[in-house]
Amino acid sequence: MVSFLRFLINGISLGSVYAIIALGYTMVYGIAKMLNFAHGDVIMVGAYIAFCAMQYLGLPPLVAVLAAMVFCTVLGMVIEGLAYRPLRQATKLAVLITAIGVSYLLQNTALLIWSSNPKVFPSVFNIGTIRLFDGNLVISSETILTIVANIVIMIALTLFTGRTKMGKAMRAVSEDRGAAELMGINVNRTISLTFAIGSALAAIAGVLLCSAYPTLQPTTGSMPGIKAFTAAVFGGIGSIPGAMIGGLLLGIIEILGKAYISTELGDALVFAVLIVVLLFKPAGLLGKPMREKV
């Protein structure tokens, strides 16, 4: 029972990281209708920036995270402006391939700068652990912090998209880009803002991911990126609470599957659940089914 609880908490923690990454995917998809495959690599860049800030500049962890967020925000906006904006009218596949190109570019730039040797990410937030059940259940501070960060981000994003003018503009653009433009919304700026927010979240996710799994390599971001993308689809792509639920469920399924069924098949299980869900709900858990008109 205690071990089950431990796995569950680990799952929630991993799922929280997925959820934060998935938020970036889902927001970008909702607004720009594109699969941003480079998102996973922005995570990796964020983690490297935080690592360098702490290791080489000796900055305190919080400042390092902020630096990573700022860097990734700028990076996200630059990528969007240079690579994706000229392709606004192009086919979806063209944008997808460009995103893959950007992903390769980020990975290989990281490879040149930081080499392929894995870096050991320092334990960032060591403020002690919580012990329950006579010390049988140890919850690390990283786990708690990840879950708390996830909840805070979720609330902040919900408030942002629901209450602020920019958030409403974002929702309007994702609903109908043409109509939003006619209402005087600056579509390009709104999309740019979405990329900025998504990339800042990716930086946070990168730091959280690497404090839980402390090996940092240029390819660190790709698998969590794919999983988070799966999570976004799982919850219904384009939906913010969907990304949250999808991410959490995916993390829990992965950890429990690895613990109780098979270590090797944990990933396969995640994808199998995704397929089953999509068969019964073709637009994801919270996605709205699209009506087709003739």
Binding site: Y29, L35, V233, L265, A272
Partner: peptide, 24 residues
């Protein structure tokens, strides 16, 4: 049975499942 991006992600999922199962 699926359409568009959902179809794409499911083919991705199957590709990963095949690789994982082959590993076992």
């Amino acid at each position: 049975r699926l359409r568009g991006d959902y179809l794409a992600i499911v083919t991705l999922a199957f590709g990963e499942i095949i690789r994982n199962v082959l590993n076992c």
